[in-house]
């Protein structure tokens, strides 16, 4: 049995990670072959090699799951993929599908150092650019939702100015319910069991996504 090319190995691990995260249970060989668009036989061979190398384990039910080492390596590659794809689409304006293919090739060669720098380059908040679009995050704000909606906060633009929001429990990860929305966009949201009235411009700085 020949040794797998590192990029193939990483592609498989990434696929297992995607499938298992998506379904929440161990993957099957068919699912992985489907995700990578190869035939099940090739996939079977590759998966066996990865099990032998200690990246994957076969579960008693016949599924395939990542080992700790495998999960780590897969997560690193997945992060590289995300950062690259973000850079290609958001910064260079390449179309999504093309960027994804490109990222798939680049992710295996790029160094960790470069990825870190690229990531902080993308993330670095520029003055006068609050609430810039971020990859993989929603770009909808509280203003895009209506009365009665429950949403999850993703990002607070201008975090320095609105410290009070943090202290009242309106911060990334928290669920808030819109209790009232006036035609002038002023709103009352419920967070931590308390009703908070906020001005439209504050609501516009709270990025949220539909929960569930």
């Amino acid at each position: 049995m020949h040794t797998m090319h590192p990029s193939t190995c990483e592609d498989y691990l990434e696929a297992v990670l995607t499938v298992t995260t998506g379904t929440g249970r161990p993957a099957t060989a068919e699912e992985i072959a489907g995700a990578l668009e190869t035939d099940p036989d090739t996939a079977g061979t590759a998966l066996s090699a990865l099990v032998r190398d200690g990246y994957l384990v076969r579960t008693p039910e016949g599924g395939i799951d990542l080992t700790e080492t495998g999960r780590e390596r897969a997560a690193t590659v997945a992060r590289k993929h995300r950062v690259l794809q973000c850079f290609l689409t958001e910064m260079l304006g390449i179309d999504g599908a093309a960027a994804s293919r490109e990222a798939c090739t680049l992710e295996h060669e790029i160094s960790d150092e470069t990825i870190d720098r690229l990531s902080s380059y993308i993330d670095c908040p520029r003055p006068r650019h609050p609430g810039r679009r971020r990859c993989g995050r929603s770009t909808t704000t509280l203003l895009d939702f209506s009365e009665g909606d429950t949403v999850r906060v993703t990002v607070l633009a201008q975090p320095g100015c609105n410290r009070r929001l943090l202290d009242l429990g309106i911060l990334p990860g928290e669920m808030v319910t819109i209790r009232r929305k006036l035609p002038n966009q002023g709103m009352v949201v419920r967070a931590k069991g308390c009703d908070i009235a906020i001005s439209p411009e504050i609501a516009a700085s709270i990025f949220v996504e539909k929960s569930g």
Binding site: L168, V188, A197, E201, I202
Partner: peptide
């Protein structure tokens, strides 16, 4: 000076 919106507990 800076403009602040309202964040007020009801």
């Amino acid at each position: 000076g800076e403009r602040f919106g309202m964040i007020m507990e009801m």
